[in-house]
């Protein structure tokens, strides 16, 4: 019965609240990417955007009683984990090579 209560609690919160929350989270992520220059912060902001989307997926899944949403969330989390692993490795390499994590300095591929 816990599940039912859980679902009821969730249903008790209007969907708009979820939308607002994830929109805010997403915007924070976007603004972070835009304004911050430290590459690690940007990286975290990207994660934030991903999670904002995850939240939406989970919320819509719950509302529609469709488990696909949650499956996708797990799927995305798995991919994100892999991405973090690769991404952080690249970051470490960049840092080792340039002693720097400022993205504005990383423009060597320009032409």
């Amino acid at each position: 019965m816990v599940q039912d209560t859980m679902a009821q609690t969730l249903h008790g919160i209007p969907i708009n609240a979820y939308l607002m929350l994830s929109a805010v989270l997403f915007s924070i992520g976007v603004l972070g990417v835009l304004y911050r220059r430290n590459i690690i912060v940007i990286f975290m902001c990207i994660e934030l955007m991903l999670n904002a989307v995850n939240l939406l997926l989970a919320a819509f899944g719950a509302y529609r009683g469709d488990s696909n949403g949650q499956i996708f969330v797990f799927f995305i989390m798995a991919v994100a984990a892999a991405e973090v692993a690769v991404g952080l490795a690249i970051l470490v390499m960049i840092y080792r090579n340039t002693k720097n994590t400022d993205i504005d300095e990383l423009s060597r591929l320009k032409w």
Partner: peptide
């Protein structure tokens, strides 16, 4: 070509 500044922030 000049539009390709190489600044990630700009691209984003």
């Amino acid at each position: 070509r000049l539009t390709q500044t190489g600044k990630i922030g700009y691209y984003v």
